[in-house]
Design a protein around this nucleic acid. Structure first.
Length: 300
DNA sequence: AGTGTATCCTGCAGGC
DNA sequence: TGCCTGCAGGATACAC
């Protein structure tokens, strides 16, 4: 199985289903969407009990994990790159990396929503506030408790937030000049920039009009503001759309994101480029698919 | 410095 | 109908 067919589907499905990616990749917009969904519910809530269904997502034995959190209150809900950061009242953080299929959802005590199919960890909240459920089909996600020093070390190792003030054209220009990595690989490296995964990397390269395999130091200077703008634009649009619609992905309230319909390149192999009509191509490098328009994204 | 491979895990498409 | 295989991906470790 190669090319378009690997992300396509049998004839007979609607065009939307045929072209929309159907694999979960929670990236910055999905994490942001979940954070926004949890923010009204978690701050101030006490963790009354922690039950683990799948210990393998925890950073320590389940009993230790539960003991470390029980009785503590959530203070704030944040995000760092693709990770959710739940700050506790004692300044520790519960850092949730969603991996490939993780999601974090709040369930009120009397919820009419169907129960989660693959719960991995459940946090029972005090004051009849229901529960916080970490749900993860594939369990590539991780939940780590970090004290303030560990948190600082961890967050310092990540690159800047692409939607934050440190991600500037000047910074980008300087960093790109230091590396021979292909653009897609560079964007995926969380130490360079935090929050971009395989879906949005293809989208960003498309919007910027740059081939994903171009070594970043060879990107012409005049293209760098365009890449900077494309990065922000794609991520902002996706945040506004509440993430990409993917089979496994749901927001904290159980909604589906809308960005899947707006994808320009990812998952569209064989379909016409929305800009020029040329067929979108799927290539594989570094063991991952990238999607591009061979006309719009010629190597500079 | 960068690439490729394997690992964790599950669902699902496709072949038979 | 169902079994089997391959594939998808984030992060990481490791060999080259």
């Amino acid at each position: 199985m190669a090319g378009a067919a690997s992300l396509g589907s049998p004839a007979g499905l609607s065009p939307d289903l045929r072209t929309a990616p159907r694999f979960l990749v929670p990236e910055l917009p999905e994490a942001e969407t979940i954070a926004r969904g949890l923010r009204p519910h978690l701050p101030g809530r006490r963790i009354d009990a922690v039950r683990w269904i799948h210990e393998d997502v925890l950073d320590r034995p389940g009993s230790e994990f539960a003991a470390a959190l029980t009785g503590t209150r959530f203070e704030a809900v944040g995000r760092r790159g693709k990770n959710l950061v739940l700050r506790l009242e004692d300044d520790r953080r519960l850092v949730v990396n969603l991996g490939m299929s993780g999601r974090l959802l709040h369930r009120p005590l009397e919820s009419s929503a169907p129960p989660p199919t693959h719960p991995a960890v459940r946090f029972q909240l005090g004051d009849a506030a229901g529960e916080l459920v970490y749900h993860d089909v594939r369990r590539f996600g991780t939940l780590a408790i970090r004290d303030p020093e560990e948190w600082k070390d961890w967050t310092d190792r990540l690159g800047p937030e692409p939607l934050g003030p440190d991600f500037t054209v000047e910074w980008l220009q300087e960093r790109l000049g230091e590396s021979r990595m292909p653009l897609r690989s560079w964007l995926l490296d969380q130490r360079k920039v935090a929050g971009v995964g395989n879906i949005y990397a293809s989208e960003i390269a498309f919007v910027a009009g740059i081939h994903p395999q171009v070594p970043v130091r060879e990107i012409p200077g005049p293209m760098i503001p365009r890449l900077h703008h494309a990065t922000r634009q794609v991520l902002k649009e996706a945040v506004d759309a509440r993430g990409t619609t993917l089979r496994d992905y749901r927001t904290a309230q159980g909604w589906e994101g809308e960005y899947g319909h707006q994808l320009r390149a990812y998952g569209r192999a064989g379909d016409p480029c929305r800009r020029c009509g040329t067929r979108i191509v799927r290539i594989v490098f570094s063991n991952r698919s990238a999607f591009l328009c061979p006309e719009c994204q010629q190597t500079p």
